[in-house]
């Protein structure tokens, strides 16, 4: 009896080493072993009344449409405009994020780390894919993949460069390897030229990557360009 799934040959875009893109084969004879296996598990578990398909649909909807980095962006934007909130967030991020009701599954225990002109934080999980779901949603493929997980602990400056974040030589880098149930949220620096922006407007500058620490918050110009492009 196999103790593990026997894996067939697959294209490089389906491997873990190269992040997977565009391999949505859902029809007819192209069913892969993986697709068949998932369908088999679901059909057996539903048949045995062990799962309710409505529950599966709602779980997917929750994580595909309801939980995402907009949550974290609201937390960060508030920390930019409300010094008391920022202090609470840095002292006890779990309680401060819970004020928004943004704690829970895979965000039960939170720590917020702030970027400053002389310090930059970046988050990884070298052993698996730990990530603060409640404030950022489910992690992107690159975060879960070997190239990022292997390199950011040994060559963070190089990795940040690759993401377009060039730091001064004397900037202290702090890499957070999420090996426990505590999850880390990076508070990026507030961009210049946003003094009269409202909290809601500021939240538009806070990207997922900025809260992982592989990007800075968008500048007003970059936001305008992104909005024009979309």
């Amino acid at each position: 009896m196999p103790g593990y799934i026997v894996l067939g040959k697959r294209s490089r875009h389906e491997t873990m080493v190269m992040p997977e893109h565009h391999h949505d084969h859902e029809h007819g004879s192209h069913l892969s072993d993986t697709e068949l296996r998932v369908r088999a598990l679901e059909s057996l578990l539903v048949e045995k009344d062990l799962v309710n398909p409505d529950t599966l649909n709602e779980l997917v909807d929750t994580y595909e449409h309801k939980v995402g980095p907009r949550n974290g962006a609201r937390v960060v934007a508030r920390s930019w405009v409300d010094p008391d909130y920022r202090r609470r967030l840095l002292d006890d991020a779990t309680a401060a994020i819970d004020e928004f009701a943004f704690t829970g599954r895979r965000g039960e225990y939170m720590v917020a780390v702030e970027n400053t002109p002389t310090r930059h934080n970046v988050v990884v999980c070298t052993l698996c894919s730990c990530y603060p779901w409640t404030v950022l949603g489910l992690p992107p493929v690159w975060y879960k993949s070997a190239p990022y997980r292997s390199r950011v602990v040994i060559d963070p400056r190089g990795v940040l460069n690759e993401f377009g974040v060039t730091l001064a030589e004397n900037t202290e880098i702090r890499v957070w390897d999420s090996t426990s149930e505590t999850r880390y949220l990076v508070i990026p620096q507030r961009p210049a030229g946003t003094d009269d922006w409202s909290q809601d407007e500021l939240a538009n500058l806070v990207t997922r990557d900025a809260m992982i620490g592989v990007a800075r918050a968008l500048t007003p110009d970059a936001l305008a360009r992104a909005e024009a492009a979309s």
């Binding site: 080493v17 190269m18 992040p19 997977e20 893109h21 565009h22 391999h23 949505d24 084969h25 859902e26 993986t34 697709e35 998932v38 369908r39 598990l41 679901e42 578990l45 799962v51 309710n52 529950t55 599966l56 649909n57 779980l59 997917v60 994580y63 595909e64 995402g68 949603g137 489910l138 992107p140 493929v141 690159w142 993949s145 070997a146 190239p147 990022y148 292997s150 390199r151 990795v159 690759e162 993401f163 990557d209």
Partner: peptide, 27 residues
């Protein structure tokens, strides 16, 4: 392992079986 390869405007799931696998694991 090669370069990090972020996908622009990445969807949460890349295939239906990923959705079902995720939800079955939680359920």
């Amino acid at each position: 392992f090669g370069p990090i390869d972020p996908e622009v405007d990445e969807p949460v799931f890349h295939a239906e079986w990923e959705r079902r696998c995720f939800a079955l694991s939680v359920a």
